[in-house]
């Protein structure tokens, strides 16, 4: 049962990802990206990573989609609305072919070297202890990344000073 969920979600992730690239309308692209995030979160939860699944679904499928849609609405492009000028369907049409060819090449390479990665025994540890105690430099880095993000946004959004 678990394997079926994983394979179906993996297929959904791939399909949503390719659709996000190939669709013409940018809003549909953002929604496909959110669906891909949800599929990835299901995979993570089934494989035993509940914290990461929580972050993925709340931040990527939620916050980033909101950022995209607000960006799209702020830049309402009246002239080239239906993306005909961007000509995406023709330019991206070759993507499924490229992916299938790459997939066949990789499967061939994997079979040639008899690829086999044994799955190790799952260590039993508390996530909170691992995160707060043994990743301290990371946490400092994350704090500074968030401060940097705040600084960056305040610089990019600042109003131009009126020339007096």
């Amino acid at each position: 049962m678990e394997n079926i969920i994983i394979y179906v979600s993996l297929a959904a992730l791939l399909v949503c990802g390719v659709l996000a690239v190939m669709l013409r309308s940018i809003i549909k692209d953002a929604i496909c990206l959110a669906a891909a995030s949800a599929a990835l979160a299901i995979i993570m939860y089934t494989l035993g990573a509940p914290w990461a699944a929580l972050f993925e679904v709340s931040v990527c499928a939620g916050l980033i989609t909101v950022i995209f849609i607000s960006g799209i609405s702020l830049s309402h492009d009246t002239k080239a609305e239906v993306r005909r000028e961007y000509d995406d369907k023709r330019r991206m049409g070759v993507l499924p072919v490229v992916l299938v060819v790459a997939g066949i090449v990789m499967i061939g390479a994997g079979a040639a070297i008899h690829f086999e990665m044994p799955v190790a025994q799952r260590l039993v540890q508390d996530f909170r202890e691992v995160f707060w105690n043994s990743r301290q430099a990371d946490i400092w880095g994350q704090i500074i990344v968030m401060l940097t993000g705040g600084t960056a946004i305040s610089v990019l959004i600042k109003e131009e000073k009126k020339k007096s």
């Binding site: 993570m44 494989l47 035993g48 990573a49 914290w51 990461a52 972050f55 993925e56 931040v59 990527c60 916050l63 980033i64 950022i67 799955v119 190790a120 025994q121 799952r122 260590l123 540890q125 508390d126 996530f127 691992v130 995160f131 043994s134 990743r135 990371d138 880095g141 994350q142 990344v145 968030m146 940097t148 993000g149 960056a152």
Partner: peptide, 19 residues
């Protein structure tokens, strides 16, 4: 087998991705 460490990495990557 070290899924918790992997989750710590993933959470950090997601934060950076947002910024």
């Amino acid at each position: 087998g070290n899924m918790e460490l992997s989750q710590a990495f993933i959470i950090t990557i997601i934060v950076i991705e947002v910024v």
